[in-house]
Nucleic acid binder design. Sequence first.
DNA 1: GATTTAAGTTCTACCATCAAACTTATCTGA
DNA 2: TCAGATAAGTTTGATGGTAGAACTTAAATC
Lengths: 409, 409
Amino acid sequence: MTAQQPATAAGQTSPRGRATVAVRQSSLRESNLAALVAAVCASEVPPSRADLAASLGITRATASRLADELVEAGLLDEVTREQVGPGRPARPLVPGERVVALGLSVDVDQLLVRAVDLRGRLVAERAAPLPEGDAGAVLAGLAELARSVRQGLRGRIVVGSGVAVPGVVADRRLLVRAPNLGWSEVDVPAHLPTVSGRRAVVGNEADLAAVVEAEPVPGRAGPWSDFVHVTARVGVGGAVVSGGQVVVGEHGAAGELGHVCVDPHGPRCPCGSTGCLERYAGLEALAAASGLAPERVATDLGVRAAEGDPRCAEALAILSWSLSIALASVVNVVGISSVVLGGHLAQLEPFLHDDLAHRLQQRVLGSRWDPVRLRPALADPGVAATGAAFLVLEDVITSPATWLPTVRG
Amino acid sequence: MTAQQPATAAGQTSPRGRATVAVRQSSLRESNLAALVAAVCASEVPPSRADLAASLGITRATASRLADELVEAGLLDEVTREQVGPGRPARPLVPGERVVALGLSVDVDQLLVRAVDLRGRLVAERAAPLPEGDAGAVLAGLAELARSVRQGLRGRIVVGSGVAVPGVVADRRLLVRAPNLGWSEVDVPAHLPTVSGRRAVVGNEADLAAVVEAEPVPGRAGPWSDFVHVTARVGVGGAVVSGGQVVVGEHGAAGELGHVCVDPHGPRCPCGSTGCLERYAGLEALAAASGLAPERVATDLGVRAAEGDPRCAEALAILSWSLSIALASVVNVVGISSVVLGGHLAQLEPFLHDDLAHRLQQRVLGSRWDPVRLRPALADPGVAATGAAFLVLEDVITSPATWLPTVRG
DNA sequence: GATTTAAGTTCTACCATCAAACTTATCTGA
DNA sequence: TCAGATAAGTTTGATGGTAGAACTTAAATC
């Protein structure tokens, strides 16, 4: 899902990564504008025009002209830096703070709308309980919530909106099915207002959470660019991130870690298979094994197990065992040896880490050369909404020319 | 492995797919040359200069000028087409047949060298038994064999050589480890002659077989661009192809389908884990279960089972069961629902197809909406060598400008 | 206050593409 | 047989974006 387009420097490319359309003079400019914005967003310290010229391999003249246009349009901001040495002082550039995107999220229990700026900062946020009714009613409520957030964004350049949904998404638009909401074949953008004339883009919530995990700030890579993201809540979902990109698969349904087979002789799963990971690591299974109420699992299971509660210790051991089998298979197949644990697994991570790492070490083929790394996910229950906004902001970084006034003559 | 670079229209991009280096006038030309060559290679019917101009969105003038340069350099050939209607007759273009690449392959039992032209045709081939000795001795033998094949290629433009090896490859160069050969940390290109001043590029044999499966002719997509390729020979290997590209993973070790866990309570595997697919679908396991000699498994197992031999039928059932569990997990995670069966599985495919398809249908999450497709691999034991040559030919398609005379003034 | 250093700007040259007119080669039909 | 139609390919000058080099600006240093 989330179909992060394989953005290229200039021109369209086929799925195989070869150019299918020729490039012209103007694409040259567009692609250099994109390179400039990407460089500014990716940089830890705000670069000057001269820095950009050097790092991108263009002349200062060209870098300066392009940067001026971007500053003029508000896509970049100029900041002042305290002088550090001789020479004319630089005018460093940072991502434009007037640029914001809306991130919408539909979950099983609430609606959430966030506004995030190009620097990745949360500008506004509003939540509401899930309205009663069908997809139309719920999305009408979401549209209303989004409108109210937009009210408070006067003076900003609202570049678009993204939506996170708990289901399979095709083509960044169609929600094919969302079992937990009971929806199928919903054309989500059709129910939402356009922003600056642009339709909302749609993504799967687990994928969007992984986007933020991979890139905590739009356009700037996080510490890990290749990892498997497992999110356990009621069900178990996940995403595979490779080279900073979420792997979406043929029909946008990749990342179904919950239904990797842990034990073919294990319990039946409603999906039709047997011994799926979800039957061991899902909330229901953990509650049953530990004797805890479902809402206490995330907070109490680890602590109780550490205190010596035998049922909790047993539940934690089964969790670790089942995760190790499923994750080892995934790691062997996709060749990625970093794992991010999300949902209630994030809170249990301190109690799981050593045992799970040890078990993975035994089952992962390349672990002798490259040990498996484990990390808890960001502790933000609304990440998916942020990820949805990032989806739009990444588009701005990829093709900033769209947002420039087309002055011809 | 096989690190197929995510080739872009113009300029370099980061792993995240954003431009890191600006593009200049000359990149424009380079990228349009590449687009032209790619279009000619991808086309079923040879396109004229006017066809190319229309499909790429450039003027006939530009298309013509670029095409002339490519024809001049031998990268494209002009053919004559019988006239079909009024107007000046077109001079259709096809990939240049003088352009050939060498594909080398080291296997556990033999050396193989092929020469393949830009149209994907096998031009020459020579095989030799595996020489005694260490990596140096074996690669010296391979170099000698390559030299002898090159002798017969006078008048051709030999653009480079690729090498297929049965092991993990890093950076298209270093053979990290090859258990079946007992090699590790071998800098393969260092032992081989350069071709036109270019070092050989190295890839994993399973990945290279998948490359040919995805693109039977260089630059022209085959029927499937997203599939899981399982190859069972002595061991069980594989590759995941997504969007026509082989998924290589963080360290080039992706695609280890042989060590996906089928049953955690299953037999121990030398890899340190338990119940790996290789313990069920590997040649040794099949021979033991069926009572057949290892070399007869591929040819006889299916026939004997169909004739009613109970041990063979049992062995086939276990094979199908174990494949279904492992493949279902892979398909759920990477979201790809096409499977190509290679090695001895290709020959067994007719006997496996129905039962395996049925089992997968039950275990794969999205199979109700998108049934899993099964297909046997190409019946060519030397595909890997062809794939190695393709690796080089794809580079020519991606950046043909490298092969043009640099006329400046 | 002269000198050094480096950022940013201005100007001309270059080069690849575009647009449009032009040439060439074949078919069509009287 | 030959003019007309049709479409491929070519030539010409214009356009637009970057390169290169000289120039201006602003601060630190001595």
